[in-house]
Protein backbone atom coordinates (compact mmCIF):
# COMPACT_ATOMS: atom_id res chain seq x y z
CA UNK A 1 0.00 0.00 0.00
CA UNK A 2 1.39 3.37 -0.99
CA UNK A 3 2.50 5.77 1.73
CA UNK A 4 1.64 9.28 0.67
CA UNK A 5 2.87 12.51 2.19
CA UNK A 6 -0.10 14.84 2.29
CA UNK A 7 1.35 18.38 2.34
CA UNK A 8 -1.30 19.27 4.91
CA UNK A 9 -1.43 16.17 7.13
CA UNK A 10 1.89 14.33 6.73
CA UNK A 11 2.50 10.67 5.88
CA UNK A 12 -0.71 8.75 5.44
CA UNK A 13 -1.67 5.40 3.99
CA UNK A 14 -3.09 5.24 0.51
CA UNK A 15 -6.48 4.01 1.68
CA UNK A 16 -7.23 7.53 2.97
CA UNK A 17 -6.85 8.93 -0.55
CA UNK A 18 -8.66 8.70 -3.84
CA UNK A 19 -6.99 8.99 -7.20
CA UNK A 20 -7.65 11.81 -9.65
CA UNK A 21 -5.52 11.04 -12.70
CA UNK A 22 -3.01 13.01 -14.73
CA UNK A 23 -2.33 16.35 -13.03
CA UNK A 24 -0.89 18.02 -16.10
CA UNK A 25 -4.25 18.13 -17.85
CA UNK A 26 -5.43 21.76 -17.89
CA UNK A 27 -9.12 22.43 -18.19
CA UNK A 28 -9.76 24.85 -21.07
CA UNK A 29 -10.94 28.27 -19.97
CA UNK A 30 -14.69 28.71 -19.70
CA UNK A 31 -16.35 30.49 -22.57
CA UNK A 32 -13.28 30.42 -24.78
CA UNK A 33 -13.32 29.09 -28.34
CA UNK A 34 -11.59 25.75 -28.59
CA UNK A 35 -11.09 23.34 -31.48
CA UNK A 36 -12.72 19.92 -31.47
CA UNK A 37 -9.30 18.31 -31.35
CA UNK A 38 -8.12 20.33 -28.35
CA UNK A 39 -11.34 19.66 -26.51
CA UNK A 40 -11.14 15.92 -27.19
CA UNK A 41 -7.54 15.88 -26.07
CA UNK A 42 -8.63 17.45 -22.80
CA UNK A 43 -11.49 15.01 -22.27
CA UNK A 44 -9.98 11.74 -23.50
CA UNK A 45 -6.32 11.72 -24.38
CA UNK A 46 -3.73 11.08 -21.67
CA UNK A 47 0.01 10.64 -21.90
CA UNK A 48 -0.12 7.58 -19.63
CA UNK A 49 3.58 7.87 -18.88
CA UNK A 50 5.82 5.07 -17.81
CA UNK A 51 8.11 6.65 -15.27
CA UNK A 52 7.67 9.96 -13.47
CA UNK A 53 4.03 10.93 -13.55
CA UNK A 54 2.39 13.99 -12.01
CA UNK A 55 -1.01 13.03 -10.79
CA UNK A 56 -3.84 14.24 -8.61
CA UNK A 57 -4.99 12.58 -5.42
CA UNK A 58 -7.59 13.75 -2.94
CA UNK A 59 -7.07 13.19 0.75
CA UNK A 60 -10.64 12.03 0.95
CA UNK A 61 -10.69 10.61 4.48
CA UNK A 62 -8.43 13.35 5.78
CA UNK A 63 -8.31 17.04 4.97
CA UNK A 64 -10.26 16.57 1.70
CA UNK A 65 -7.64 18.59 -0.14
CA UNK A 66 -6.68 17.70 -3.69
CA UNK A 67 -2.91 17.36 -3.95
CA UNK A 68 -0.36 16.79 -6.69
CA UNK A 69 2.01 13.86 -6.52
CA UNK A 70 4.97 12.97 -8.66
CA UNK A 71 5.15 9.18 -8.72
CA UNK A 72 7.01 6.64 -10.81
CA UNK A 73 4.43 4.49 -12.54
CA UNK A 74 6.96 1.72 -13.05
CA UNK A 75 8.11 1.44 -9.44
CA UNK A 76 5.43 3.33 -7.48
CA UNK A 77 8.14 5.44 -5.86
CA UNK A 78 6.86 8.88 -4.84
CA UNK A 79 9.23 11.79 -5.31
CA UNK A 80 7.28 14.95 -4.49
CA UNK A 81 3.91 16.09 -3.27
CA UNK A 82 2.47 19.56 -3.76
CA UNK A 83 -0.56 21.45 -2.54
CA UNK A 84 -3.30 22.11 -5.07
CA UNK A 85 -2.19 25.72 -5.55
CA UNK A 86 1.50 24.91 -6.04
CA UNK A 87 2.67 24.77 -9.63
CA UNK A 88 4.30 21.67 -11.02
CA UNK A 89 7.87 22.58 -11.87
Amino acid sequence: MLHIKCPHCGMRSQNEFSYGGDATVKRPELGKEISDQDWNNFVYNRKSLRGKHWELWQHLSGCRQWIKIQRDTATHEIFKTLKANEEIS
Binding site: S18, R27, L56, Q58, Q65, W66, A84
Partner: peptide, 12 residues
Amino acid sequence: SHLEYYLQIVWP
Protein backbone atom coordinates in the same frame (compact mmCIF):
# COMPACT_ATOMS: atom_id res chain seq x y z
CA SER B 1 -15.43 15.52 -4.60
CA HIS B 2 -16.36 16.95 -7.99
CA LEU B 3 -17.08 20.39 -6.48
CA GLU B 4 -13.90 20.25 -4.39
CA TYR B 5 -11.87 19.37 -7.48
CA TYR B 6 -13.12 22.38 -9.44
CA LEU B 7 -12.74 24.72 -6.48
CA GLN B 8 -9.25 23.59 -5.51
CA ILE B 9 -7.67 22.69 -8.84
CA VAL B 10 -9.50 24.40 -11.69
CA TRP B 11 -10.98 27.62 -10.27
CA PRO B 12 -9.10 28.37 -7.06
